[in-house]
């Protein structure tokens, strides 16, 4: 680390001892210097990362981390360089989903180096700080926010096309700290489930975004339907008993394959919220038990089944997000 730009006189050859900084002042100056350096490094990081996307929800457990990791992997699948910052201190589960369970923070020459998960996605998680993942620390507010700033300012991401930031649920201090520390955030993605309560909370998130001055890129509806597929006699009709006693008739194709998507909750809630608030609807992700398994065994759904329905749904959401950030894309380019 470089010397602080504060010259401390040697007390022996200093006759005007009243100009000397007291140990306390010296400490303050050093702190101010560290703060300034961190601020500069955050700006530098801001420049090296082309796009920064926050993933939020009003309610917990709606799938923010699943969506964050899914977006990151889907972007990486297309050849982008991607990072994820998992800022959830109380329950960071991104490492598990990225196959990095049990990793510890890797620090070299005062810089924090991300771990590389599936598809080369760079991961930094609060979990890397925890001694034991099952006993989350309760951080006091100021310490927590300081840790977040440090996490942003001291991480060596390198050049990234996308940084996805996964937050704890709710509209707490963390998003504000991030928005104030990291310049040029492209916007936030709000995750909801089709349940009304979750919807109500996502409304809060949208209002919240206005107060953060970070645009809403749109709403993603998670666990929006359950797709059942199977095989039966060729070109025949199958009746499936869905939730709420509703029966669904489907026809199989010439090979006998059929598939039907059942609404487990009320469908279209995310779309309604999006419409009501005039923000884009980014797409719906099916309920897929593979996500739960992936969270447990560390192989994300998109990695275990890169061509599956869920991977396809994610790439649609990614497409909508890119559309949102793209603005008046490469205006100068004429394609013939």
């Amino acid at each position: 680390m470089a010397e602080p730009p504060v010259s401390i006189h040697n007390p022996n050859d200093d006759d005007s001892s009243n100009q000397r900084a007291s140990p306390q002042q010296q400490k303050q100056m050093e702190q101010a210097y560290a703060q300034m350096k961190r601020k500069m490094s955050m700006q530098e990081i801001g420049r090296k990362i082309k796009h920064k996307i926050m993933v939020l929800s009003g309610k917990g457990g709606v799938g923010k981390s699943t969506v964050s990791t899914g977006l990151a992997l889907s972007l990486a699948q297309q050849g982008n360089s991607v990072g994820i910052l998992d800022i959830d201190i109380t329950g960071p589960n991104v490492p598990k989903m990225m196959g990095l369970d049990g990793r510890r923070l890797h620090v070299e020459e005062g810089r924090i180096h991300p771990a590389q998960g599936h598809l080369g996605v760079k991961v930094i998680s609060m979990a890397f700080l925890l001694e034991d993942e099952d006993t989350p620390v309760v951080w006091r507010g100021p310490i927590k926010l300081g840790a977040i700033q440090q996490f942003i300012g001291d991480v060596e991401w390198g050049e990234l096309d996308y940084l996805i930031i996964d937050f704890p649920p709710g509209t707490s201090d963390e998003p504000l700290t991030v928005a104030q520390s990291l310049p040029d955030i492209d916007g936030m993605v709000i995750v909801t489930t089709p349940q009304d309560v979750a919807l109500l909370d996502s409304r809060k998130s949208i209002t919240f975004s206005e107060s953060l001055k970070v645009p809403v890129l749109g709403v993603v509806e998670n666990m929006s339907g359950y797709t059942i597929s199977g095989k039966t006699a060729a070109s025949s009709e199958v009746t499936i008993a869905g939730p709420g006693g509703k029966s669904h008739k489907v026809s199989s194709d010439a090979d006998g394959n059929f598939s039907v998507t059942l609404d487990i909750f009320k469908e279209g809630g995310g779309k309604d919220t999006a419409e009501e608030f005039g923000v884009p609807f980014l797409g719906a992700l099916p309920f897929d038990p593979g996500f739960v398994r992936g969270g447990d065994d560390g192989v994300h759904r998109i990695v275990s089944e890169p061509e599956g329905e869920s991977a396809k749904a994610f790439s649609k959401v990614v497409e909508s997000i890119i559309d949102q950030i793209g603005e008046s894309s490469s205006e100068g380019l004429e394609i013939i």
């Binding site: 796009h51 050849g79 982008n80 793209g326 894309s329 490469s330 380019l333 394609i335």
Partner: peptide, 24 residues
């Protein structure tokens, strides 16, 4: 088919061949 992707890339859509890549 060719389309721009954001401000930083283009993508190609083929009938035969992989259309997943985003070319910066």
């Amino acid at each position: 088919k060719v389309r721009t992707v954001g401000k930083y890339a283009i993508a190609f859509e083929w009938v035969n061949g992989c259309s997943s890549g985003i070319y910066r």
